[in-house]
């Protein structure tokens, strides 16, 4: 494919006459010293500049919004972090569309029976999510036609056993508390984190 077109520069790019980008000329002994000095100078400047490493467990990043959600009016997603899901029991009808979507992706969602009685959920089934399998693509949120399943900012899901990674409908209904307030500030001096 490349060989057929690249024997001569493609016509579309010839309109603005591309010129090869030449790097600075090879270093002669005189400029070698200058090159070293410049390299050392650009590195040593950073001794005085504050580092922008995020001290993670003490500091947590602030995210956009409350997590990835779906806008019923425009039928597109709302930007946000795709963390752990939240399930609104008063909206879920047990239609299984989230589980059907996930079937070809991660097989993380299974429908389980719940004790609650809802008029709109005669079958009394709701999704249960296995976070050992979930890939956090959020396509289940897109698929939910009743806006019952959204995602939240909670990403700290580590646990000691596989069983604890399986979140039942009751666990998914709890709104997580996430308190990240650190933002990246970029100014003339460089990048840094500000609480």
């Amino acid at each position: 494919m490349t060989s057929s077109t690249s024997s001569s520069p493609p016509s579309s790019s010839s309109s603005h006459s591309p010129s090869p980008s030449f790097p600075p000329k090879s270093h002669t002994p005189a400029t070698t010293a200058a090159g070293f000095i410049k390299a050392i100078e650009s590195g040593s400047k950073h001794l005085l500049i504050k580092r922008f490493t995020l001290r993670y467990p003490e500091q947590k990043l602030k995210f956009v919004g409350d997590g990835y959600q779906f806008d019923p009016k425009r039928a597109v997603g709302i930007a946000g972090l795709r963390g752990r899901h939240i399930l609104y029991h008063d909206k879920c009808t047990g239609c299984q569309l989230c589980a059907i979507t996930c079937e070809g992706i991660a097989e993380a969602i299974g429908m389980v029976r719940v004790d609650e009685q809802w008029k709109h959920n005669k079958k009394a089934i709701m999704p249960q999510i296995d976070y050992g399998k979930c890939v956090f693509c959020g396509l289940c949120v897109d698929a939910c036609p009743f806006y019952a399943l959204f995602m939240t900012n909670d990403y700290e899901l580590a646990s000691f056993t596989k069983e604890h990674l399986i979140y039942t409908p009751a666990q998914l209904a709890i709104k997580p508390k996430y308190s990240g307030d650190v933002e990246i500030k970029i100014d003339d001096h460089g990048a840094s984190h500000h609480g």
């Binding site: 090159g35 410049k38 390299a39």
Partner: peptide
Amino acid sequence: EDIFYNNP
């Protein structure tokens, strides 16, 4: 560029 590409 200073520290890497132009580094002798």
